[in-house]
């Protein structure tokens, strides 16, 4: 959590690090933002990512990474404050608004994001996306959930199981 800028001698301007996506796109961001990722934070504290080296992220493609970084940049200031102690209500509301819009995206992107958030250990992003997916499930019947989330059509066997389940737990379906 500590802001890493002063970590190894980079004074003045915020320290920048370079991240390299799986398709070899290079992203340069402030170390403070990248440090929202627990994984990257350690590397950065160790002095990695500076200069021309860059930190390779073979599991994250450029589209996803840019999205992830968008989130990190937005949340970095609040995280640097150690959460929210001196965040004002306005700041928080703004972050919330940002979050809501941020996850208003295609499902496949959501899944890529949550995977990336998981791999990079960005807890806030992980929760945000999980919440979003959970919200998509709410209030729907099992078939609607399957349809919404793009599951293949149930096999007859699955369908029978589902029906039996609904029969048994009828109260949950009202």
């Amino acid at each position: 959590m500590a802001a890493p800028e002063s970590g190894d001698g980079n004074n003045g301007a915020a320290r920048m690090v370079t991240l390299i996506s799986s398709d070899n796109t290079r992203f340069e961001v402030e170390a403070a933002a990248a440090s929202l990722s627990q994984t990257l934070q350690l590397t950065i504290l160790d002095g990695g990512g500076g200069g021309g080296d860059g930190i390779p992220l073979p599991n994250v493609d450029s589209a996803t990474l840019s999205k992830v970084l968008e989130y990190c940049i937005k949340h970095a200031p609040a995280a640097a404050n150690g959460g929210a102690p001196n965040a004002t209500a306005v700041d928080r509301a703004e972050l919330e608004r940002f979050d809501n819009e941020f996850v208003n995206i295609d499902q496949s992107v959501l899944y890529s994001l949550i995977m990336a958030a998981h791999n990079l250990e960005i807890e806030g992003l992980q929760s945000l996306v999980a919440k979003k997916v959970a919200d998509m499930i709410k209030g729907k019947s099992p078939m609607e959930i399957r349809r919404t989330l793009g599951f293949p059509d149930p096999t007859p066997e699955e369908q029978a199981e589902m029906n039996a389940h609904m029969l048994e737990y009828g109260w949950a379906y009202e």
Partner: peptide, 26 residues
């Protein structure tokens, strides 16, 4: 998760991420 391309459906997510999602049901 060596897969570079992101998963495209919930089914491709690892179990613990599914858990994370299901934990947030209301």
């Amino acid at each position: 998760h060596p897969r570079a391309a992101g998963p495209t459906t919930v089914h491709n997510l690892p179990d613990h991420l599914i858990t994370l999602i299901l934990l947030r049901l209301d």
